[in-house]
């Protein structure tokens, strides 16, 4: 049984849980995925399964990839990722659906966060900034970036301006509110990285985390 699935973020809304509360949820299109390739320890040195999600036209597929999809006997896919799984248990063109989350209470979601561009320290790291008046020279700049003669350099990892967002982010331990098998939808409690329509990888949360969350 696979523990991961590929999908797409649809958007957020609110639903009611069974206990009379209104909860914020993110709607995820979760699969259906198809197995493109299996990796086995004999041939590849490790066990894994390559999944593909969201069909695309053959004319938008490069020749090498076309061959790869043809070898699996499936239509070209837009989003392809390798996930952990027993290679012997699966074979190419096999379908994987949201049903793998049927009895799962918590999932982790991996996505690409919204890009914020080149951001300053106030936005990127939450620095306080400086006075707007009283003769201050900079309002949103960072202050000192280190000491003097020792160590005569800036410490590694110093928080400075730079690219913010548009990187891989994993949100852990999101509660599964609903699994919709008919429409291949998954409703998880809370926010998920990325724009609406961006691709995400969903995986079963580790049991330890699940147990801890259950207590609350």
């Amino acid at each position: 049984m696979l523990t991961s699935l590929l999908g797409k973020k649809i958007g957020m809304t609110q639903v009611t849980d069974g206990q009379g509360r209104v909860v914020p949820v993110t709607v995820l299109q979760a699969g259906p995925c198809e197995v493109l390739q299996v990796k086995t320890s004999q041939r590849d040195g490790y066990e894994a399964v390559q999944l593909g999600f969201d069909e695309k036209k053959a004319k938008n597929t490069t020749r090498p990839l076309e061959g790869h999809f043809a070898a699996a006997g499936v239509a070209p896919k837009r989003f392809v990722r390798e996930v952990p799984g027993d290679g012997a248990e699966h074979e190419p063109s096999e379908a994987v659906t949201v049903e793998i989350f049927n009895d799962v209470h918590f999932v982790d979601v991996i996505g690409t966060s919204k890009g914020k561009g080149f951001a300053g320290v106030m936005k990127r790291w939450g620095f306080a900034g400086h006075k707007a008046t009283h003769g201050a020279s900079g309002k949103r700049v960072l202050g000192s970036i280190g000491m003097s003669a020792w160590p005569s350099r800036v410490l590694r990892g110093k928080k400075m301006p730079g690219q913010m967002g548009n990187r891989r982010v994993m949100v852990k331990g999101l509660e599964v509110i609903k699994v919709d098998r008919e429409r291949n939808l998954l409703l998880v409690k809370g926010a998920v990285p990325g724009h609406n329509g961006s691709y995400v990888q969903i995986k079963r949360s580790v049991e330890r985390r699940k147990a801890r969350n259950k207590r609350h």
Binding site: I10, G11, T13, V15, V27, R183, L185, L187
Partner: peptide, 9 residues
Amino acid sequence: MNRIINDIE
């Protein structure tokens, strides 16, 4: 996109 959310709501 929105159609799916409308259906859920």
